[in-house]
């Protein structure tokens, strides 16, 4: 009884399957390792650069603190939300409640297209129209509007999905009681869709916190604290520090860049963990019929 030299077909197939799964797992490791290294590098170098003065002093040349950049980022992100939330939420409501027709289809499609426009193109568009065209110069308003343009598609899409998950029976119950359209949407559907909308807004915050390219041509950079002017006054932001200070050949500049990166990454991480929890907690609730 001699075994054939070649492996049996079944064994061969098992080998190929094993190889396939190993390759799949290997590609995951190949992707996860850089991510872990990015987090590790930023945390290690960022924490060693962290100090109390970062939060109390403004940037002075290539040293000092980051107070101007931290507050600037918060101002720009809030400014973006002021424009993006109303537009995004209302557009999302339209798409979910009345968007079955041709117009809705087109907007839904173009919403995705807008989300795919490179952020530098949005930034340069704002530079041409707002910074030069309107004569606003580098300013909070120009920066905020550019960020808003970038996140509106996401807020609209999240809002639409949140409203679509509200069971139709609830709306019909409202109409049966004689409510008007506006009442049904704002008093019945909106409260149920709210967690989904908040998810979208959090997502938008996470994106705008980390953006650089659309702000370079619109918000500029400033070493000083924001003085409350909406136009004709540039403003600092954290991502600028990362990009610009790492290119300076000074240790203090590099330390600031990594500290800024740490702050940005921490905020983005926290929001993403929050998102994961929120999405998992809200989905079964919003989807369930009994409540």
């Amino acid at each position: 009884m001699s075994r054939p030299l070649s492996l049996s077909r079944t064994t061969q197939r098992r080998w190929w399957s094993g190889l396939g799964w190993s390759l799949a797992a290997a590609s995951f490791v190949l992707v996860a390792t850089p991510l872990l290294d990015i987090l590790f590098t930023v945390f290690r170098k960022g924490f060693s650069a962290l100090s109390f003065t970062l939060f109390t002093k403004v940037t002075n040349g290539i040293s000092g603190g980051l107070l101007n950049a931290i507050t600037g980022t918060l101002v720009l992100v809030s400014g973006a939300l002021v424009f993006a939330v109303p537009v995004g939420v209302l557009a999302g409501i339209y798409l979910s409640e009345f968007g079955r027709g041709r117009f809705g289809q087109v907007v839904r499609f173009l919403d995705d297209v807008l989300a795919g426009v490179p952020s530098i193109v949005l930034g340069y568009f704002s530079y041409v129209t707002l910074v030069i065209g309107m004569g606003w110069q580098f300013s909070v308003l120009a920066g905020s509007i550019t960020l808003a343009l970038m996140v509106v598609p996401y807020i609209a899409r999240f809002t639409e999905t949140a409203f679509l998950q509200v069971p139709n029976g609830l709306r019909e119950a409202g109409y049966a009681l004689g409510f008007r359209e506006l009442t049904v949407i704002t008093r019945i559907a909106l409260p149920l869709a709210l967690p989904g909308i908040l998810t979208g807004i959090l997502f938008a915050i996470a994106i705008s916190l980390g953006e650089t390219a659309p702000l370079i041509y619109t918000a500029g950079w400033s070493n000083f604290l924001w003085n409350g002017r909406l136009v004709h006054e540039p403003i600092g932001y954290l991502t600028y520090v990362i990009w610009s200070f790492i290119n300076q050949p000074y240790r203090s500049a590099h330390a600031l860049a990594f500290a800024a990166a740490l702050l940005v990454i921490l905020m983005v991480l926290l929001i993403n963990i929050g998102l994961t929890i929120l999405v998992r907690r809200t989905r079964p609730l919003a989807g369930s019929q009994k409540r």
Binding site: V31, P34, L35, I38, T41, G210, A257, A261, V264, I265
Partner: peptide, 16 residues
């Protein structure tokens, strides 16, 4: 992990 990879800002990728 994949979601985080998408969430890392591009300037942080640049820094790394």
């Amino acid at each position: 992990v994949v979601e985080l990879l998408a969430a890392v800002p591009s300037v942080v990728y640049g820094l790394w």
